[in-house]
């Protein structure tokens, strides 16, 4: 019995060491083009809600983290081939993505996606712009409207401004800042649509240790309210908190 306990202890210890060794540096992949979730600030560094959350999570899980930017389009393939260890890029938890990668629990509650157009009575069954491989693109494709896909969020909004699309469909929290700054040029159209299961961190399916560590850190941030503070800091007082 004693040897058994010892072996178990030794095993647990080596497993822990292997984890620490494997993750001496955790590379966090993000898009850097989706304010306020993640963007490149004036100094050329990654900033935003997810930058704050990511750094705090790493501090709590006692990991050294490093930020990497990657195109949205290839963000999942690069994770599974091991170029970075986690995706933290405003990625909604969906069943489709869950087949390829694993998600932590959500650190951003499920919210609504909205249509934004030049006028409130825009034709939402006409041409609607959305970013490639997002839940919004999937929704538009099924809604009967003509889907116009773009590689970056920036281009989807530009398409509405220059008249190529009747409306853009994206996360409310991304579009809100743009609508506010447009000085009345852009406005919400139609009703908000609740989509997705919240935003979580994407992690390789084979990397359960990292997922558990991050999960625990997210739970602790939810419990002591730091996550809510960050949510309010970046998304304003109206944001849904935990």
């Amino acid at each position: 019995m004693k040897t058994l306990t010892l072996t178990t202890a030794a095993l647990a210890l080596t497993a822990g060491m292997a984890f620490a060794d494997a993750h001496s540096t955790v590379r966090l992949g993000t898009e850097g083009a989706y304010p306020p979730f993640n963007f490149i600030n004036d100094a050329g560094e990654i900033d935003g809600f997810e930058a704050d959350v990511g750094n705090e999570l790493c501090a709590r899980a006692e990991l050294t983290c490093e930020w990497v930017t990657n195109e949205w389009d290839s963000i999942i393939p690069n994770l599974v081939s091991g170029n970075y260890d986690a995706i933290i890029a405003g990625m909604s938890i969906t069943a489709e993505r869950d087949e390829v990668i694993d998600f932590t629990q959500d650190y951003f509650p499920p919210t609504a996606s909205v249509y934004v157009a030049l006028s409130a009575d825009a034709d939402l069954t006409g041409v609607v712009a959305a970013q490639t491989s997002t839940i919004q693109a999937g929704y538009v494709a099924e809604s009967g409207a003509t889907l116009l896909e773009y590689a970056t969020p920036e281009e989807t909004v530009a398409a509405v401004r220059n008249g190529e699309a009747d409306a853009v469909f994206a996360d409310y929290d991304f579009l809100a800042a743009i609508v506010d700054a447009s000085g009345g040029e852009l406005t919400y159209a139609g009703e908000p649509v609740p989509l997705g299961g919240g935003v979580g961190m994407g992690i390789r399916e084979s990397d359960a240790e990292l997922r558990d560590a991050m999960d625990a850190a997210i739970t602790s941030m939810k419990e002591d309210g730091t996550l809510n503070t960050l949510l309010v800091k970046w998304f304003g007082d109206d944001v849904t908190t935990y």
Binding site: G32, A33, P35, P36, F39, I40, N41, D42, D47, G48, T69, N70, E71, N78, N83, T152, E154, V157, A158, R161, A177, I178, D180, A181
Partner: peptide, 29 residues
């Protein structure tokens, strides 16, 4: 995946809203 001049031109030229930058501007791509 190398951040070359085209990446930066697209990133810098994109619309910048005042919440996230000290230098807001329209679509300058």
């Amino acid at each position: 995946g190398v951040e070359d001049i085209v990446y930066w031109a697209r990133e810098l030229g994109g619309t910048k809203t005042p919440q996230f930058t000290a230098y807001p501007h329209g679509d300058w791509r």
